[in-house]
Amino acid sequence: MSKRHLLAMFSSFDEAELVVQELRNTSIKGFDVNDDLVVKSPIEHPEVEEFLGEKPVYVQWFTLFGALMGGLLGFFLISGAQANFFEQLKGGKPIVPFPPNFVLTYEMFILGGVYISVLGFLICAGLPAKRSPLYSSSVSEDKIAILVKSEAGATSTLRAIFTKHQALEIQEEAGK
């Protein structure tokens, strides 16, 4: 079954919200609001998340893991090196002194946290990604876009809904 993409542009979040609500209320065959709908916006807009419904974010887990591993790696790398370096006794301090190791462990903790968070962001956000088949550069300017994916049969229904809500422009993937 071939899926087709449809992109509609709106001038405001309000319109887009209405569209999403309507799509959610209308049952269209071959189109699932939660899976096949993507809202693109030029700014970060919390309301988008609200009207699309809660979706889980996993970046924090990466962060936690990265920070802990960074800290552990830091401490053991440093202490291990101190314990094995040829010449260790310095300034009357213990071979494995805590204050310096804490400082370095702390830095490694942050380093791990930041690095793995960014990694997590890329993974969770699916970046780097190929551009989706339908894209309008006006999204990066001031338009809100709704990209839907549906079976070929459903496009006209969707199109009707978009038009109803004053879509500024509707793009449709060229037929194969």
Partner: peptide
């Protein structure tokens, strides 16, 4: 990480 960490910590000598 565990692998690289243990490598780093264990191969000073």
């Amino acid at each position: 990480l565990v692998a690289s960490g243990s490598y780093a910590a264990d191969t000073q000598k």
